[in-house]
């Protein structure tokens, strides 16, 4: 990497000094749990240079598809970007990136959410399941199998989100009618319009008692 320009270093120092004063305050409050003790100590001793790179990222312990990770993430990183860019789990798709399309749907502690609107750091200690975590070896999850059999997709971009949502839907017991399935799948948009086959796939899984 090239050296930082003077200007850049100056800006970074300013930024760190703001953060340093905050960390000092936070030790006085005694209520803030984010900061490893070493960082607080470093801040009190004004060891700016040594801890500069640590300040840029936050520690994050997270379990994804049964694998535990101890990571460092920039606070702005969304759970979606963490999965795709840092953990190479690109099955979860980025559609609108604004919580409107559902392509990024994953399960957090068993509950379906939009990973594009969740900061990675706010998932400390959580268990994440992505589309990659559904199959067991070569055996597809029944919902994956049903989507294939019923042609529940065309281009496939929304499919991993649809399947993650559908798996949660069955678990929630919101499959009493086609209307209820449609209503509770409304957070997943399919621009190809495969909706009727998606509903059939979900009914199939529900009827087989899985």
């Amino acid at each position: 990497m090239a050296d930082y320009s003077d200007n850049q270093s100056h800006e970074e120092d300013l930024e760190h000094s703001t953060r340093r004063s905050f960390f000092k305050q936070s030790t006085a409050f005694g209520a803030i749990a984010l900061t490893p003790a070493a960082l607080v100590r470093a801040a009190e001793h004004q060891w700016d240079e040594k801890i500069a790179d640590v300040f840029e990222k936050m520690p994050l312990n997270i379990e994804v598809n049964g694998v535990k990770h101890s990571l460092k993430v920039e606070p702005r990183t969304t759970l979606l970007d963490l999965l795709r860019e840092q953990l190479d789990l690109t099955g979860t798709k980025k559609g609108c990136d604004r919580g409107q399309c559902g392509a990024c749907t994953v399960h957090v502690n068993g509950v379906r959410i939009n990973s594009c609107l969740s900061l990675a750091v706010s998932n400390e200690g959580k268990k994440i399941t992505t589309i990659e975590g559904l199959a067991v070896g070569d055996n597809l999850h029944p919902m994956q199998d049903a989507f294939i059999r019923h042609d529940g997709f065309q281009c496939g971009y929304c499919t991993s989100g649809q399947i993650m949502s559908a798996v949660a839907l069955v678990k929630e017991g919101r499959t009493h009618s086609r209307e209820q399935i449609s209503e509770f799948m409304s957070g997943n948009i399919c621009r190809c319009g495969a909706y009727s086959n998606i509903v059939k796939a979900i009914e199939d899984v529900k009827n087989s008692g899985l």
Binding site: E15, F22, A33, P75, R76, L119, E124
Partner: peptide, 25 residues
Amino acid sequence: NPFTYVRATETSGAIRALGRDSHFL
């Protein structure tokens, strides 16, 4: 924009940690 992330563990601490240009998440 870049921001500092703080995780609060009790209500009074969260309120004290909130400063200018900051938001509860």
